[in-house]
Write a protein that binds this DNA or RNA. Structure first.
Lengths: 192, 192
DNA sequence: GCTCTTTCTTAAGGTACCTTAAGATTCATC
DNA sequence: GATGAATCTTAAGGTACCTTAAGAAAGAGC
């Protein structure tokens, strides 16, 4: 099964797609292979694609005014990754999208995707559902960041994203959680 | 212009709606009037409606394990307000939705809305776009909560939501920003 | 398997923000 | 316009998390 097949299977987990429609989608996909630490989207560029991960592991991160990196999102096979703000508003990205290991990404160009929404209603439904879930997940994360301690957030991260915790450096996990690597290290010492 | 007309106008700002479609939407709307401090959705209930504010001011908030309130969202005329997690997953709400002043809300029932999506493609598009924007706004808020100081966040809140800051109690603004009212008070002292 | 780089840990001193508690002010309702 | 309730301020002491710096461990590339 190639990368695009994986995407079609992924879509079909949420919405029905006929094989004709699948063919039409397939035509508009491009596949990108990335090496460890390769950057797929640079801050300053405008994001022109939706990006589906078919192999590997990537992160989206931004640099703040003091040149510190903040991880916004990790992604592994079956996830989407992007600077959505840039993609949706067509303004320069604030985030970088970078492969953390050799990876394969399927890209759907924005204009063609918006056209496909008119042809394939199910596809538009897929993205509505996707954004609903993404919104809800982010809301939970924001609330957690405000009302829970770093230790609680770390434990929940470990529970929820065990697969990810095991393949990315700890200082990136710390960054995702909004704490320093030193503090994460000291938290870990006090946890079974 | 009545409350439902306002909703139709609001939809038409993003997507085209024929007058037939408008009639069909109108049929499925219900209008709720609320007094100051009335609660529209209680934590524990399952949210069955999308809710559009046509007058007044509301907030969504939850109570954490220590019975502290955390404001998730404010809303004024032209905004939507809900516990979206509950609405989307049909599980008991963690949030309360409460009027902060006498308010009018238009409600669209979930099942009928999902049926309308099949009849009126533009309506589904409207909600895809809405969730995209909501997602992006929440992402920004999460990032801000992690990389900015309370003072920066307060200044940005004041700039972005001046209309809201002026009509809700300061302790709710503090809660929204993730700080105590006492600390907000001391921040304000040091700001022009 | 060696070497250089990346990542992780430890520890001491510092700061942003919290907690508690009391008094001052504004607001809703009669 | 009086009165009680809601909201805001002030201040002192406390804590979660940060900064800096250095050494230890693990990993990548040859």
């Amino acid at each position: 099964m190639d990368a695009v097949d994986q995407l079609i299977v992924h879509l079909r987990e949420s919405v029905p797609i006929t094989s004709e429609e699948a063919g039409s989608i397939r035509k508009h996909c491009s596949v990108v292979e990335l090496g460890r630490r390769d950057v797929l989207l640079f801050a300053g560029e405008t994001s022109k694609h939706m990006r589906f991960i078919s192999k590997g592991c990537l992160r989206a991160y931004y640099m703040d005014a003091e040149a510190k990196e903040h991880v916004v999102q990790f992604g592994i096979v079956g996830w989407w990754i992007n600077d959505l703000y840039s993609y949706l508003t067509q303004t320069p990205a604030k985030q970088f999208v970078q492969a953390l290991e050799p990876s394969v990404v399927v890209q759907l160009q924005r204009d063609t995707l918006n056209q496909l929404f008119h042809e394939i209603t199910a596809l538009e439904r897929f993205f509505r559902l996707k954004f609903e879930k993404a919104y809800v997940a982010f809301q939970e994360r924001t609330m957690d960041a405000m009302s829970k301690t770093a230790e609680q957030r770390y434990l929940e991260f470990r529970f929820k994203y065990r697969a990810i915790e095991q393949r990315v450096p700890q200082y990136m996990v710390a960054s995702y959680l909004g704490i320093t690597p030193e503090f994460l290290s000291s938290l870990r010492k006090n946890i079974p």
